[in-house]
Design a protein around this nucleic acid. Structure first.
Lengths: 349, 349
DNA sequence: GCGATGTGGGAAAAGGTTTTCTCAAAAGGG
DNA sequence: CCCTTTTGAGAAAACCTTTTCCCACATCGC
């Protein structure tokens, strides 16, 4: 090895500690600590000198040591089983956004649907003394595959089934469905169909119920929702069922779809049949998954569940629980919003 | 407040410490520690008794204290600017998978394209004494909006532009393109077009180069790649350009697309023109984004960048760096694979 | 029975920070 | 000039675990 060889690993000198700052400023660690935290009493001159020294040395307190003492790590865990992040990522963005200003970081863990993995991650979080946990998932009527009910740290459930007595935030699916159907009604559509996902999903029923309510409230004929899959393929099939029969008179003039993929299938199938969207038939989707909604022709009007707001609220709720504040248990529903694009046309006349 | 009011917050008793275990087992903390870690010397009986006590009490060592002492937190940070997680999530799954077995957790931080936010998160990670950082992004020819070059902890770059001298892992885009074009050649296609993204992306040129190479190697006519956007809309337009001209003889019999969305647009546009896929024209996409690839009709054959493998390798590389091992700096390219579905047909005859 | 060896287990320091308590000096009151 | 109060700053404990030493006791060989 030559004399000017690199020192073995990259690792430069270790981080500068409070002790070093204190030494450099000619005070005790206690005084240094107080100076930097704005605690204790000392001359303004001393305080400033210590601060300046710390700045010069690039001092940053060791979070590990702080957390150990304060019994707060300023870290929260975010648990999800939504592999593709379609729902969790906007939610996480909201959570992160709400917490970063409070100096809190977020640990994301994907537990898939694996209980063992879930348990593993939860224990790791507990060991690392996270201040709280936000549980989220890909559907609001299922639990994560892991028990969070007796955790000695606060837990908030967002967009997943909460444990009884816990704080839960979900989207207001009924409200979202109303938004869509009422939009159609306002535009003068009279024969509004509903094509949605499988019966095993609670939201399918929630939304169908709201759909029926709005139709009845407006004196319109209620046709049975078509349940199927959450796929484009099912959208195609549903168009077959709805528009296959001869009498053009019986055709719907609007289709409210359970998600954007179904809507995309519906729109494509209508175009193939020469049925114009939005002139002949209006279409509304659900989820406002931009990558899909903006690629349909015409671009898809869709119900947005405001997941990042949901995440933000979840973050704030957790924060106040961590702070010892009481938060109302039970499920809180947050409103959706309708993102209007071009698949429904304008009011008649 | 009534007598049977709930104790203020949920928080039950604090976690059990090593000291309590030691007391319960009638030994010193030192002995207890050694018993649980398989260190030191003591009778098997003593060791077992301590272990049993710990188990009974549900003792879990405080990671914070351990990390403080060992100067390793068994945590790594994952930095990304890929908001939708299309690339980062598979990558993160791989990273997480590689590390969880080593008892290492992963901190995911989305820094968007915001330097201030990035700096903030990096500092938070440093303060929390993460053992290393994996940087990832949404394209391999751009840096994250944050400087990781002098960090005193190891950094590995995955699917983003590495700093000079650092360890970087990216997909082998040239190889991926070869896979696609050679697949066409093998199937007997002779006039192979290439529709891809904007010139500002390095991969556009890398793949185009490989595309031309394969054509030349096989004595086929090389037509200029069509550069545009990464969207379905561009796929439609490109079909217009390629198949708009009169002479059916000049039409391509295969289109290699720069991503799955373009491919989807191409396939849809072809169908609208009555051109059959795969009989008349074969189509291959890139990214193997299942949600798109499986929804095209017919399902799309696509190049998969093996991002979760990439993540796994990145995790392992970081781990060995953290362990003080030396790792070869520079960019390592990991092979892609072709996922064959139905958009290319079978060999002729 | 005495020194050498081995064995089981404990005391204490370390890691970096915060906080409480204490204390010396300075200032103020009479 | 003496006593009390205030002020500035330090010593030390605490958080929880790991690890290095060290010690007492038992065993063994002679």
């Amino acid at each position: 090895m030559s004399a000017d060889a690199q020192p073995a690993p990259v690792s430069a000198k270790p981080p500068v500690t409070l002790r070093e700052v204190a030494a450099a400023a000619g005070v005790s660690v206690a005084t240094a600590s107080k100076a930097l935290n704005g605690q204790g009493r000392m001359t303004a001159e001393t305080r400033e000198r210590i601060r300046e020294t710390a700045r010069l040395l690039g001092f940053r307190p060791n979070s590990l040591a702080q957390s150990l003492l304060r019994k707060r790590s300023f870290t929260v865990g975010l648990l999800t089983n939504d592999t593709y992040g379609r729902f969790s990522l906007p939610l996480m963005a909201g959570v992160s956004d709400a917490l970063v200003d409070n100096g809190v970081s977020v640990f994301l863990c994907n537990v898939e649907d694996d209980t063992r993995l879930g348990q593993l991650h939860v224990e790791a979080m507990l060991d690392k003394r996270v201040d709280g946990i936000i549980a989220t998932g890909k559907r609001i009527d299922r639990h994560l595959p892991v028990d969070l009910s007796n955790l000695r740290i606060p837990v908030v459930y967002a967009f997943t089934q909460p444990d009884p007595g816990a704080v839960g935030l979900v989207s207001d699916d009924a409200g979202g469905a109303r938004l869509a159907v009422e939009h159609f009604v306002r535009l003068g559509r009279r024969r509004i169909a509903h094509v949605t996902g499988p019966a095993s999903f609670a939201v399918v029923h929630t939304r169908a119920e709201a759909y029926r309510d709005v139709l009845r409230e407006n004196g319109l004929a209620v046709s049975e929702p078509l349940l199927g899959a959450w796929s484009e393929g099912w959208g195609h099939e549903a168009v077959e069922k709805l528009f296959g029969k001869a009498g053009r008179e019986g055709w719907p003039d609007a289709v409210f779809c359970g998600n954007d993929q179904i809507a995309r299938g519906v729109i494509d199938a209508l175009r193939e049949r020469g049925i114009r969207v939005p002139e002949d038939v209006g279409v509304v989707g659900f989820d406002n998954w931009e990558i899909v909604a903006e690629a349909t022709r015409p671009p898809l009007t869709s119900v947005d569940m405001n997941l990042s707001t949901l995440g933000r609220e979840a973050g704030l709720a957790l924060l106040s629980l961590v702070g010892g504040q009481w938060a109302a248990p039970g499920i809180r529903k947050l409103p959706c919003r309708l993102v209007v694009r071009q698949s429904c046309g304008s009011p008649p006349g």
